[in-house]
Amino acid sequence: MQRDPMHRDWPDILGGLALAAIGAAAAGWALAQYDIGTLRRMGPGFFPAILGGLLTVLGLVVALPALRRRSDAPGIEPLAALAVLAAILVFGLGLFRIGLVAATAAAVLVASLPAPRPGWGWRLALAAAIALLTVVVFGLGLRMSLPLWPRLP
């Protein structure tokens, strides 16, 4: 058996423990906040409490055996994750403040930051192209009611 702690099955250990924590928190919240009721008239807390308990058990069933197992660590992409999630937030927060065109362009620029090709030229061109495409498809094509430009005061 491999004793090196770095080669444990970390995905299963951490994933299982996280699920167990979520399950325990949900069950605890349900028991504290919602009525459990009776078998005839189940309360709103009945289902979440049982499911939370079940998830806690399953999380531990995943995590505990993994402590004695080894596995390759997955390749994590923190930069890509950060840029992609930030781009979605920029788009969601900007849509009704700066309009569809500017929000799209800004989100594309943020999202393209981790792309493995240097230079700003292609990024700006891409932002403009996708903004145009978005307006054509969603504004003109699907007639979604969206502000295209920043709202004038």
Binding site: I88, F96, V108, A111, S112, I130, L133, T134, M144
Partner: peptide, 29 residues
């Protein structure tokens, strides 16, 4: 690299189209 920023924008608007709330776009993140 040309495709994925467009995918992100399109999927955000797809989610938005369901009930027209920008809350749902933030939820996607």
């Amino acid at each position: 690299r040309w495709l994925y920023p467009a995918i992100l924008i399109f999927l955000c608007l797809g989610v938005y189209s369901v009930r027209g709330l920008s809350f749902d776009i933030l939820a996607v993140a």
